[in-house]
């Protein structure tokens, strides 16, 4: 009757979002009075499994199957559902990464159990109670989670990845899931490299300068690009811009675009719709530039300049050059 956590790993160690999920799951397991166990899939799983003692994992189950060498979403889901059947845990918890979420949805479909995605709090019971994200985090939902086994994912970067108060000795146990041909029908057949153009990726940039409808046109991005270049940052935009065809969707910040976490975010001529803000919650500081002092972005920023971006941005870029020159 354990609490079972899907742990994703890179280079033989659990990744950040999995550590966050384990931290939440540890609290859940303690409250339920159950041991914390993990399930790991894919190359390097053995090594990652052995390193989970600091995170309080008593038993780590490693899936061993030839079919699991390339990512196959339904096979991952079957692996989880299979283990749930063998162990009858009280809960199956996963990080809210795209892959883990996809695998959990497959497991939930196979086992015909409810699934709550992107939880930030959870307390055991029947039903369990969870708080989960709606609207990409702009709204929270408190819900009762039913089902013989409680299935939920933990929203990335919303829970602190703490270690266990006392390390335990992790037992590694291998198991072979029963996979069918159908489970392997959809799998990654090839990894196509995308040309990043040598630029800084939006998701990892320390500085992001974005333009919205207020730029007026594709050409209107020139002062946005100039400031981004001066700060060694990346250019972003709002959805109003991408649907007008002024910038590619890869530049879009928001709920259905890229989620950013820079040291400073500078949205220019962007009103600050909740769906845009859902993409920049991870920013340390927000400096808004907008003609309208009542725009929601001003209410949600740390700093604001009220004015026309076509006048304000060149002045800032020039002042930076001057400050560096002097």
């Amino acid at each position: 009757m354990a609490v079972l956590v899907l742990v994703e790993h890179v280079g033989g160690t659990a990744d950040d979002v999995s550590r966050q999920a384990l931290a939440l799951a540890r609290g859940y397991a303690e409250a339920a009075g159950q041991p914390l166990e993990a399930v790991l899939i894919g190359a390097g799983a053995d090594q990652a499994a052995a390193g989970l003692g600091d995170l309080g994992v008593q038993t780590a189950h490693v899936a061993v199957h030839d079919g699991l060498s390339a990512y196959a979403p339904q096979a991952w889901g079957r692996t989880l559902a299979d283990l749930v059947e063998r162990l009858a845990p009280v809960a199956l918890i996963a990080p809210g990464s795209e892959r883990a979420t996809e695998a959990m949805a497959h497991a939930a479909a196979i086992a015909d159990l409810p699934l709550a995605a992107n939880c930030i709090e959870a307390a055991p019971g029947d039903p369990a109670t969870v708080t989960r994200l709606r609207w990409g985090g702009s709204l929270l939902e408190q819900a009762r989670l039913h089902g013989a086994v409680k299935l939920f994912t933990v929203a990335p970067h919303m829970v602190e990845a703490t270690a266990a108060s006392a390390a335990v000795q992790t037992t590694v146990a291998e198991f072979t899931p029963a996979l069918t041909d159908a489970d392997l029908a959809v799998r990654v057949v090839e990894r196509a490299q995308t040309d990043s153009g040598g630029g800084i990726s939006l998701a990892d940039a320390k500085v992001v300068v974005s333009g919205g409808r207020g730029t007026g046109s594709a050409e209107g991005f020139a002062p946005v690009e100039a400031l981004a270049a001066a700060l060694g940052g990346a250019v972003g935009c709002s959805r109003a811009v991408t649907i007008a065809g002024w910038r590619p969707h890869t530049d879009q910040v928001g709920q259905t675009g890229t989620k950013i976490a820079p040291e400073i975010y500078i949205p220019c001529g962007i009103s600050g719709a909740t769906q845009h803000m859902a993409g920049c919650k991870g920013a340390k500081r927000i400096l808004a530039i907008n003609t309208d002092p009542d725009a929601p972005i001003v209410a949600n920023a740390d700093y604001a300049v009220i004015g026309d971006l076509h006048e304000v941005l060149p002045a800032i870029t020039a002042a930076i050059a001057k400050a560096r020159g002097g």
Partner: peptide, 13 residues
């Protein structure tokens, strides 16, 4: 939570 207004127009640079 309202932002700190750094200024108006280019003078805010």
């Amino acid at each position: 939570t309202q932002a700190e207004i750094l200024g108006h127009g280019p003078d805010a640079a």
